[in-house]
Design a protein around this nucleic acid. Structure first.
Lengths: 143, 143
DNA sequence: TATTGTTATACTCTATAACTATA
DNA sequence: TATAGTTATAGAGTATAACAATA
């Protein structure tokens, strides 16, 4: 059965609101991460790099949705601060395995806690709305 | 009455989901805007600069939440493409009034239409969920 | 030959500080 | 003196292309 054009009408109205919400809080996110001496992208790297997990440089580029050449400098800066470390791959010596240091894991916890802090627009919603929003987003992102 | 800590628990769960949704679609947004030869920030300028409205350079910096020194180059590039134009302020000759050209207004319509196109995560929601999401976000952003 | 990561290069965005021309 | 906008400068993120080491 073909999907009628009206099926996405509400999504088309909702999506710009999502972007407005995020954009309105962008500056606050940037300055919150700056308190950890992190740029937004560096913060995302910490988020992606779960403790115990290890990623190759290519994996990270893919998760960040950017060209692989960028992660060299990005990881350089984090490694220089001893937040992450490169280790040579066991099987394939071309590969670098990237992982968090102890200090990186500690900072990651603080960063994630700060990233989860909801903006005033969500805080002032009723608890009922907050829960519905959470549930709808879970359904959207699942699978 | 003090707000109990549990009041924001659901918002704290919802907010990272919002960011995940946006982050997952960032690359798609960047390449969509690139088809118009626009960077994301340039696209935001077009969105902010409604036809008929005019803004000073300082106003634009404020709306973009960036330092005023940045908008000089940003507007230079858009003006060079004849999408926006600077006109001297009437009363105060220090001020530049910024507005869309005809070409800018035309491109703006296409850009806004593209920006409103919802990502697959929202499209596959039920119509009921789409509407609730829209309504909750409207309540969050109102006032 | 193909792949992983790096380097070289160029452009945009960003902030800070100093400057200009008005007010 | 104060303000609007610009310029100078520096650093970070981004892409493309070329490269070395390894497979």
């Amino acid at each position: 059965m073909a999907i009628a054009p009206t099926e996405v009408a509400a999504a088309r109205e909702a999506w710009p609101l999502v972007m407005r919400l995020v954009f309105a809080n962008k500056a606050s996110f940037v300055s919150a991460m700056a308190e950890f001496d992190l740029t937004p992208v560096q913060a995302h790297v910490l988020r992606i790099l779960e403790p115990g997990r290890s990623l190759t440089m290519n994996d990270l580029a893919e998760e960040l949705r950017c060209d692989a050449s960028n992660v060299t400098g990005l990881v350089d800066r984090l490694e220089h601060r001893r937040l992450v470390e490169r280790r040579p791959g066991n099987r394939d010596r071309r590969v670098k395995e990237l992982s968090l240091t102890r200090a990186g894991a500690t900072l990651r916890r603080r960063v994630l806690a700060r990233m989860s802090e909801p903006p005033p627009e969500l805080v002032r919603l009723s608890v009922r709305d907050q829960r519905q929003l959470r549930d709808i987003l879970r359904r959207a992102l699942e699978s």
